[in-house]
Design a protein around this nucleic acid. Sequence first.
DNA 1: CCTACCGATCGGTAGG
DNA 2: CCTACCGATCGGTAGG
Lengths: 208, 208
Amino acid sequence: MVHSDRRRQIEAAAGRLFSRRGYAGTSMRDIARELDLQGGSLYAHIASKEDLLWELIEEAGRRFLDGAAGVLAVPADPSERLHGLIRNHLEVVTDPDLFAAVFLEEWKFLSEERRAEVLQLRDDYEWGFVQVLTEGAAAGTFEIPDVGLAVRYLLSALNGVPVWYRPGGSLEPATIADHYTDLFLSGILTPAVAAGESMHEGAGHGTV
Amino acid sequence: MVHSDRRRQIEAAAGRLFSRRGYAGTSMRDIARELDLQGGSLYAHIASKEDLLWELIEEAGRRFLDGAAGVLAVPADPSERLHGLIRNHLEVVTDPDLFAAVFLEEWKFLSEERRAEVLQLRDDYEWGFVQVLTEGAAAGTFEIPDVGLAVRYLLSALNGVPVWYRPGGSLEPATIADHYTDLFLSGILTPAVAAGESMHEGAGHGTV
DNA sequence: CCTACCGATCGGTAGG
DNA sequence: CCTACCGATCGGTAGG
């Protein structure tokens, strides 16, 4: 658990390369080159390429889960808790040291056991979102025909952020979280229209 | 442009494998094995592995763009046009013959020229969404503080569908499109709350 | 479409 | 951490 500096450097290089070219598209020699080492020298610090991938995925997964647990430990109404979950998710996903893109995309290259562990972790994590939406619906604050679908919709939107996010840009993760929370809670229809009256033909697109 | 049956079989096998394990994680011999061929035999039908990837990406890209153009050619109010764009996107992304996951994830393995072509196509495609949202805002139907951000949010949510969608399941693409359009237009807050009055403390999460 | 092969590169190890 | 190497596999080709 406590790793040497060199080990951390190797993990960081691997994280950058796995993010950019994927696990299968990155060779051990690619990683070594980033640190001016020979390919074989990496094995003084790590046991295998897959262990390196696992380390990165485990770390990101832990942060997702710990952050969400922190949010859910605080009593608050459903909208606030949802905002907290969204902000946590976007902080993890935009943290340049966490390589969330690797967590999200490269887990399929893990061994079967580790893959199962990741899927379990993702299920647990999603459960927090399901709980908050269900609470909000029970309280009458939210109106959600299919909670599972709404959670997949939201998490997909959040997971798209690392694709275009650049650290140091004009949008801080917390600001994106504010915008995304509003989009998810209120949508884009102007309030008067959303309130129900004055819409030309039903909802404009027969549904639900 | 007109391809032999064999060529189409090779493309389909490549699409399936590239979707599942990625371009770099799939070998030509993997593809050949699916068709009970020897690896070298593929080169009687295709020139290179990258050409195979390009073919799949080009085809999906064309369907995204053609479908959107069809929607935008019909006059309708912004909510209806948006619904049409969403339905088209989800039809493309769930079409088992189009391998949209390859289009979305594997373009980074293309040559620089082809990569640039894909990015241009994506820009053009996103432009349609930006246009519809901008029209809706100008008409007073939509209220969107940052149109570009809202489009990225929506497209990310849509691109997440192929990750969990299974053909033959209980949700048709058109049904998902209905749900997702509602989520994007109206959010999840109950109308009375969304209309502005009766919310305990501002919006519950200070924003925008 | 197969057999047989090309040079290059892969993850990983031995021995220092 | 390097040199030197292992067997396996890679994308692709020649010649039939």
